[in-house]
């Protein structure tokens, strides 16, 4: 009797699984969701609800894994780009060293007052992701600022009265200029540490390292998102594992209870007339 009931239930489960699990691959998510909702009222489909839940958790874990792999791929590409930029920078620096002299581009040339020209803005999102973005100063004076500061046409033959008026002002102006020259601007372009007229290769090295700095901020952002995705994936796997063990336990309990019921059925005298007469051993038990 119990065996028949069990076989019946298994058949029902298999039939329902065809409706609940397989359409997920062919139908859009919402459609399969409605199928599940329609079948909810049927008590025989409860086991299939568990199946669909497991299927959904697997799908979410798959999505997380794909995202994780995608992020890793982008990280690898960006890292390669950063590394090649750094190598290009070193090559240009070596070329500059070759033309300027070995000791002209070294740590001894650093200025005594250094101020950063690049900074990183860190934004923490609610989802736990951290975004790094660089900002560089635009007010940096370039090395090539040679020549007149005033724009437009200059008048060389000025009237005498204007020249006399300006003489007093010029003295003050020249004093200011000397003060300015003496002051060392800490925010000056680091190229000036290595001379006024630096070779082109040093400028190329600077450009390469500036790009590398911008990319390194992106790499830092990607690194944090990779770690976050990894944690999410780990949590998803753990949840899936606990659900699976729970499911196994419940099915084991069900099986045990069914077996118990089966044994009770066999022991009861009410069902004794179902047993064939040629099985005295069962009658005895």
């Amino acid at each position: 009797m119990g065996r028949i009931r069990k076989a019946e239930e298994e058949r029902k489960m298999r039939a329902a699984a065809q409706f609940v699990v397989f359409p997920r691959t062919f139908l859009p998510f919402n459609a399969s969701f409605f199928v599940v909702n329609d079948l909810k009222d049927n008590p025989g489909i409860k086991a299939n609800m568990v199946l669909s839940e497991a299927d959904e958790s697997s799908a979410s874990v798959d999505e997380k894994l794909l995202l994780f792999m995608e992020q890793l791929q982008i990280l690898e590409e960006k890292r390669a780009a950063v590394n090649s930029l750094i190598e290009h920078g070193w090559f240009s620096m070596s070329k500059a060293r070759y033309s300027m002299g070995n000791k002209q581009v070294c740590a001894l040339q650093y200025a005594s007052d250094i101020e950063p020209l690049v900074c990183v803005h860190v934004r923490s999102h609610d989802s736990g992701e951290v975004e790094f973005c660089t900002e560089s100063g635009d007010d940096v004076r370039s090395v090539e600022n040679i020549g007149p500061q005033e724009e437009g046409i200059r008048r060389r033959n000025k009237p005498k009265d204007v020249v006399a008026e300006k003489e007093g002002g010029d003295e003050v102006g020249s004093e200011k200029a000397t003060v300015k020259k003496n002051e060392q601007d800490p925010r000056q372009d680091p190229l000036r540490w290595f001379g006024i007229l630096v070779p082109q290769s040093l400028k190329q090295a600077q450009a390469a390292f500036k790009q590398a700095i911008e990319l390194s901020a992106e790499v830092a952002t990607l690194q944090t998102s990779v770690l976050k995705s990894r944690q999410e994936l780990k949590d998803g796997l753990r949840q899936k594992q606990t659900r699976r063990t729970q499911r196994q336990q419940t099915s084991r309990h069900q099986l045990m209870s069914e077996r118990g019921a089966e044994l009770r059925d066999v022991n009861t005298p009410a069902c004794a007339h179902w047993l064939p007469a040629s099985s005295p051993s069962l009658h005895r038990c």
Partner: peptide, 29 residues
């Protein structure tokens, strides 16, 4: 500009430090 954001620190050999300092990350507080 730079006061609000955070800095980029470098630990490296001479060429690496020189390169990144050329890029403008250096600071002496």
């Amino acid at each position: 500009m730079a006061g609000r954001g955070k800095l980029i620190a470098v630990i490296g050999d001479e060429d690496t430090c020189t390169g990144f300092l050329l890029g403008g990350v250096g600071e002496l507080n």
